[in-house]
């Protein structure tokens, strides 16, 4: 009983000292004290959470966007709220790609989409095209003016040069990766 009381005291003491930081604060995680909680205080993520669908002429795209709360980042020993995403694309009943329901673990490394923070009426995710094996892309979701149920999706390749170290004597010719995406781009998604 005495031990339980001590543990409870320690946990209470820890929680009372943890610093809560608004998710809109863009300070680097390494600048925050250990034990900080980067929290979606005003629920800015909430409007993006859910299942979003586009259907057109036998084609269907679905995004499942989830909010993860109080996730421990062991590198910095702090906690944060963030969003992860998964997607599926079917054409005429044939599944082209599907990452939804493959993994319920909230670890962002196990999902093809991640977002640290919202920005006004839009949100930016990192986006992995798992079929074309393109890692460093971005997915932008932006609400249509005045709407809370429809968003436009824009997929973008990363900008700028991307170098690959070649051993001395090797070939410097690097094949440029496919600029397209496996799922349709510039589409309007509707909340389910």
């Amino acid at each position: 009983m005495k031990n339980i009381f001590l543990i409870l005291m320690l946990i209470t003491s820890f929680l009372s000292q943890a610093q809560i930081v608004d998710i809109k604060n863009l300070d680097s995680q390494s600048d925050l004290p250990s034990g900080s909680y980067i929290k979606d205080i005003n629920g800015d993520f909430d409007k993006f959470v859910g299942t979003w669908v586009w259907v057109d002429a036998g084609k269907s795209v679905t995004f499942k966007l989830q909010k993860i709360t109080r996730y421990l980042d062991s590198e910095y020993n702090n906690y944060s709220d963030f969003m992860i995403g998964d997607y599926s694309y079917s054409s005429n009943g044939r599944v082209i790609v599907n990452t939804i329901s493959q993994n319920s673990d909230p670890n962002p490394d196990l999902h093809p989409m991640y977002s640290c923070c919202p920005y006004e009426t839009q949100i930016m995710f990192s986006f992995k095209d798992v079929r074309l094996r393109k890692d460093e892309c971005r997915a932008f979701f932006e609400f249509l003016p005045g709407s809370t149920t429809q968003m436009k999706l824009t997929l973008k390749n990363n900008e700028g040069p991307r170098g690959t170290l070649v051993p001395e004597g090797g070939s410097l010719d690097i094949t440029q990766s496919n600029p397209s995406f496996i799922i349709p781009n510039d589409i309007i998604l509707t909340k389910q």
Partner: peptide, 23 residues
Amino acid sequence: MNGTISKPQVEYGYFNTLLGTMH
């Protein structure tokens, strides 16, 4: 090295004797 049309990225190989890049 040239990138792909309409893709704002250019991928390139380099040796570690690289002195700089211009793009």
